[in-house]
Design a protein around this nucleic acid. Structure first.
Lengths: 241, 241
DNA sequence: AGGTGTAGTTAGCGA
DNA sequence: TCGCTAAGTACACCT
């Protein structure tokens, strides 16, 4: 039987049906089933990337039911040897797995996992650009990172050499949505006579052509961020050509 | 050794380091390693949902290296018994896994997977609303689904009883981004004197309060779609109260 | 708990 | 291939 303080690894010929936000059916084939201690279930095959073909996320409850209690009347597969009905606790999502032949069934207690520590995403770009704010123009000064507005924080707020406010939206990869975000911020900030006029800068490691066009149409500048270059300049001494 | 026409399932104490778009380090703990035939690697623990703690997507190449050839100088863990260096083929992403103790190491040939068939997503909402276009107002007529524009297809284009064009953006769950999308379409369509003025309708099964406010501020109507009701009316005979 | 924004997003479709 | 959009997105953060 299944045991709930451990992970189960099952290799079997199986089919699966998911019913919830959508219907998804998986014909019979040889697959890897991973059943975690929280009763979440993942079904893998050689297909796809890290995403399972089908799954049920925790919190959920697994019930092993008798093979002849299944709902399916359109039976074409041979009779399953085991049937698992996995039901989500907080919705009526159901994943039903029919197992026809088991090649391996192992159980392991993995214990506590210390978890993953990440380092170096958009936050780093923001960090470096804040420290090297003259990348937006000589004489620029930093006002603040995560400058608060009623509709969310502006990534970087600065003042240029002429004393104009500059709102900077930073993305790793700049798309249209980022330009829209910057537009909302600038529109709102420009209503405030104390800081208007506000220049907008769209800064990213890469910017799509469409986003660049949209940004320029909205009167924003685009700034390509070279992560390695910024990292190399991290002592604070900005190369001024 | 590892064999590349099959899936490997390894349960082991291991640590891992990913270096690529970000750095991510995983301290030593007992985990499940799934190595697929395409050499992609997934590392699972009890943590998280269906997403692995760490992984390398195909195409990539696994190289088993001698434990003393590792780069790491800040060694605090005991010497690993095996070290796998997984390098992405098309970038310099690297996932390095150090294995300290192996509890299970199995290999299976899963064969071809017929894949998943899905049924019932946003596409279905679009399908039903197109067939039941009078849900947006009595006398409305369908122009087309996926009405093409230079900035992407409008989900549904229709004409109302007064002969005005109506652009409909459909979402399963309506958020601010959907309203922005509809805004872009309407703005562009209204530049065309042949179809201007264009009404905008934001249609979704659920709409967030913020999105509803924004939509109304932009002059759009909001339409809540009842999937079950639409499905039940699928014979084409629309209930007209 | 719900909304918003990011993701080593992934996946799918169309130009 | 590039670009855009949806995803049973997951996940973190904030209100």
């Amino acid at each position: 039987m299944l045991q709930w303080d451990a992970v189960h690894i099952i290799v079997a010929d199986c089919s699966a049906q998911y019913s919830g936000r959508l219907q998804a059916s998986l014909p019979s084939a040889r697959r890897v089933l991973l059943i975690k201690a929280d009763q979440s279930v993942l079904i893998f095959s050689e297909l796809g990337s890290y995403k399972p073909l089908n799954w049920m996320a925790a919190p959920c409850t697994i019930k092993e039911i008798a093979p002849d209690e299944t709902d399916r009347t359109d039976r074409t597969d041979p009779a399953p040897v085991r049937v698992l009905r996995v039901a989500a606790d907080k919705s009526d999502d159901i994943l039903e797995i029919e197992i026809y032949r088991i090649f391996s069934d192992e159980t392991f207690d993995l214990g506590i996992d210390p978890g993953l520590s990440k380092d170096g995403v958009e936050d780093h770009l923001q960090h470096y650009l804040a420290k090297q704010i003259e990348r937006i123009g000589s004489g620029a000064r930093l006002v603040s990172r995560e400058y608060p507005t009623p509709i969310g924080p502006v990534d970087i707020m600065a003042v240029d050499a002429e004393g104009n406010h500059v709102a900077i939206e930073i993305k790793r990869h700049g798309g249209i949505d980022g330009v829209e975000q910057l537009t909302r911020y600038c529109k709102l900030l420009n209503r405030d006579p104390l800081i208007s006029p506000v220049r907008g800068i769209f800064a990213a490691q890469t910017i799509t052509a469409q986003a660049r066009t949209l940004a320029q149409d909205r009167g924003f500048e685009c700034l390509i961020l070279d992560y390695e270059d910024m990292k190399g300049t991290d002592d604070g001494s900005l190369r001024l050509f």
